[in-house]
Amino acid sequence: MLTSNRIRSVGAACLGGLLAMSALPAKAAWEPTRPVEFIIPAGTGGGADIMARTIQGIVAKHNLMKQPMVVINKSGGAGGEGFLDVKGSPGNPHKIIITLSNLFTTPLATGIPFNWKDLTPVAMLALDEFILWVNAEKPYKTVKEFIDAAKAANGTFKMSGTGSKQEDQIITEAIQKSANVKFIYIPERGGGAVATQLVGNHVDSTVNNPNEAVSHWRAGKVRPLCVFDGKPMPYKEVIADGKSWADIPTCKSQGLDMEYLMLRGIFMSPKATKEQVDYYIGLFQKVRETPEWQKLMADGAFNATFMTGADYTKWVADAEKTHVELMTAAGFLAK
């Protein structure tokens, strides 16, 4: 049954297409006609959740969309539930999803029938950094001292991270391979708990995101050793010990030959039209220009790369390849 709204939206899309063809400035060719569901494939309170709810707040505060944006958490099966939900609504332009690394790791580790190619890529909003942290009471000040201590401990050093067979454990695996050491990896449910275990000296190191550990850094409880990015972070404001995010060296320069960044990107339902994708790209460009968004980026020391279209698709495809390689090597694939 074709409802009046669908007819209207199809009509609008056709009209938009005609306008675009006649080389007129493509004004809002398509617009949501009902509330937009913004799916979070993670629980409340995590990094993706905070980002999505900030976006929801920005959209509402600056009136960027005529229809309301509704945020829904679908965290079951390491986010698999959320991905399958969007995959299962082809041609529904009122459903978008924010992703983290579980876009790749969840289907690989659990065997859930899903691949990012099932969805329509919209835009990369930012990349999340990872930093190697140790307790500030410990003597090691550099990556080399830390790795030497880990080697001397003979496989009893404990590394804690969020979840199992997800980004934190993949990084741990990569460190083990790169530096030829062995850690005991202890999964926790969230980044906050991971950081607390480090402060309480229950584990020896973590690979927390910047905003998960920054308050403990400022309190002098933990110490950053290196960042898993290709170049140092751009934020020069002093945070603690007279150091800024920009002063943290890259792990590569410290002899740990690896990089890892986590995608914070947007996808939408399968079979979305170009007009629909363009609408959301425009929306997120407007979100990026707000001061609230810029504050979020600076507070969390995010890598604020924005990508759309073919660039974005290529980046995701490359990232998928990296994940398949790393996870195959670590034996993390679902049997």
Binding site: T44, G45, G192, N211, H216, R218, L296
Partner: peptide, 17 residues
């Protein structure tokens, strides 16, 4: 956990400081 997210949205960093 949600309140914690709220603090972060308002630019308040929960923690010892």
């Amino acid at each position: 956990a949600v309140l914690l997210g709220g603090l972060m949205i308002w630019g308040l960093q929960p923690g010892p400081m």
